[in-house]
């Protein structure tokens, strides 16, 4: 059996004149943790809505499990949380999860364990409408896991939560990821994605900018942070060096971009030979945030048609 869970083929959604998702093609494979990145309004939720059977695509196709299952049959093997937790307010936590098991045609055996996992077992007989937002969100996670899904889809799972709630949800996602569940995490919060994802898909204005591993997102070799007592000498040296790209000054340090792979040991030795004394020296990888910004900004200039 193939490992492809979901495949999108030129999927497009237009709302009147606005193109929310534009010819998006991608595929999700079992066992990976995907981050779907993009600013607000970039088409993340619309894309998820289409593959989850609640939004009709304008054109293009998608298929679950290589087309061996219809969408709604496939969704029984998926767990998904979209934006806000939607449950029957007059039912208890337990009743809501039991109903979902009926819909998904799965066993109710997992419910107890999951309610304990999300810390709601004590409140299992409370009606959903009495829950706080954090509790609702945690119940939604339990609901999404009730069928031991092949793929867990999370859309902005920490939206609107307080710091403690955000922390709890992140811990949960990490735990689930470590258990080997395939995850698709849509978010505009980059550090959220950075912490758990192995692969990223970057969307902006409904167009795919990047799809691949997190490390491949930028071609960057990282950068040095350097501070010395003799700045002039340092700058002369740097400008002559073949592996050095752009140099900028940030606060007390020079931020020195690399155009080749240079190890810290080699570089510091070279500096020592020149008699440059360092007060600060470290090598860093750019954050996902800055990579994301540079990616979406450069592409914007490169493809003005979008």
């Amino acid at each position: 059996m193939s490992n492809t869970l979901l495949e999108l083929n030129e999927l497009t959604k237009k709302y009147g004149g606005l193109t929310a998702v534009n010819k998006l093609s991608l595929s999700l494979t079992k066992g990976k943790v995907y981050g779907l990145l993009g600013p607000n309004g970039s088409g993340k939720s619309t894309t998820l809505g289409m593959v989850l059977n609640v939004i009709n695509p304008t054109s293009g196709t998608f298929q679950w499990y290589d087309g061996s299952l219809t969408t709604h049959e496939a969704l029984k093997k998926i767990g998904a949380i979209i934006e806000r937790p939607n449950f029957y307010p007059y039912m208890t936590a337990l009743q809501n999860l039991t109903l979902i098991c009926k819909i998904k045609q799965c066993s109710t055996d997992t419910i107890e364990e999951l309610l304990k996992l999300v810390n709601l077992w004590d409140r299992k007989k409370s009606k959903f409408r009495t829950f706080s937002l954090g509790m609702k969100q945690r119940l939604a996670i339990a609901a999404a896991l009730v069928n031991q899904p092949d793929l867990l889809i999370l859309d902005e799972p920490t939206n609107g939560l307080d710091p403690e709630g955000i922390h709890q949800i992140r811990e949960l996602i990490l735990t689930i990821a470590q258990q080997g569940t395939t995850i698709l995490l849509a978010s505009h919060l980059l550090d959220e994605v950075e912490k758990v994802c192995t692969n990223v898909i970057v969307l902006k204005n409904g167009v795919k900018y990047y799809e691949g591993e997190v490390e491949g997102l930028s071609q960057s070799f990282g950068y040095f942070e350097i501070a010395t007592e003799n700045n002039e000498q340092l700058l002369n040296f740097l400008e002559a060096h073949p592996a050095i790209g752009e140099i900028s000054k940030e606060n007390k340090y020079y931020k020195v971009n690399l155009t080749q792979d240079v190890s810290t040991a080699v570089f510091s030795k070279e500096l020592q030979k020149k008699g440059i004394l360092l007060t600060h020296f470290s090598k860093k990888q750019p954050s996902l945030e800055s990579q994301f910004l540079s990616l979406t900004q450069t592409k914007e200039h490169a493809t003005p048609t979008n």
Binding site: N53, T71, H72, I82, N86, I103, K104
Partner: peptide, 15 residues
């Protein structure tokens, strides 16, 4: 109004 229709569909009920 509770958006449970949406959730039912996501959970795998067809329209």
């Amino acid at each position: 109004s509770n958006k449970t229709l949406k959730q039912n569909l996501i959970d795998g009920l067809s329209k």
